[in-house]
């Protein structure tokens, strides 16, 4: 694959096949931590970091351990354990080396273990039979797409919270979901631009 193909893969993962709006991965943090742009930025940074790292490690483990031992059926258990351990490790490392970064990201890190986007990226890279570079680029693009949509959505919701005339039945989650639906409709416009 050449550079253009990698760029296409990033574009595809970010826009055409966005994790949140087209594949429904990572909806919980998408709805849960999108009330403020600040917290959305923190979560986005934490997810991008963990997702890329987790995809690389699970990809290598799959190829180097599970396939030679023909234990592929253990992938779900192994991957989730790797992600849980990795999150714990990253949390300890950040706390030791950068207390200020820990202050900013600390509360989001534990939530990432159960963010299905992270496990989803690992599983999809195996399922689509990517090679190592493709898996790396795919996870990077997906993570960037997740972060972008999260921040975008948080900015919309900050304004939405200022509205006074939202009908009572729609307050809170329903109006957020309808907004996400419209955002997803907008992203449908990207479909078919790049094929991977």
């Amino acid at each position: 694959m050449d550079a253009v193909a990698y760029l296409q893969l990033v574009f595809w993962a970010m826009f055409v096949n966005n994790f949140v709006l087209a594949q429904f991965l990572g909806i919980c943090p998408f709805l849960g931590v999108s009330r403020k742009v600040d917290s959305a930025l923190g979560m986005a940074a934490a997810v991008i970091f963990v997702m890329v790292l987790a995809s690389v490690i699970t990809f290598l483990l799959y190829g180097a351990v599970l396939v030679p031992l023909s234990l592929q059926y253990l992938q779900t258990i192994l991957f989730i354990l790797v992600i849980a351990a990795l999150v714990q490790f990253v949390e300890m490392a950040i706390r030791k080396f950068s207390p200020s970064l820990f202050q900013a990201l600390g509360i989001y890190l534990p939530l990432i273990t159960t963010n299905c986007a992270v496990l989803g990226a690992s599983l999809l890279a195996i399922k689509k039979e990517f090679d190592f570079m493709e898996a790396l680029v795919f996870s990077l693009g997906s993570a960037l797409g997740f972060g972008m949509v999260l921040v975008l959505f948080a900015a919309i919701r900050e304004r939405l919270a200022l509205l006074r005339d939202t009908p009572r039945a729609f307050r809170g989650m329903p109006i957020a979901l309808l907004t996400a639906g419209i955002l997803s409709l907008a992203f449908l416009g990207f479909s078919g631009i790049v094929k991977v």
Binding site: L21, F24, M173, L177, L178, G181, L185, L188
Partner: peptide, 11 residues
């Protein structure tokens, strides 16, 4: 399609 999921659940 994906938007339908968000809209239906919201309603």
């Amino acid at each position: 399609l994906p938007p339908g999921g968000f809209l239906t659940l919201g309603l």
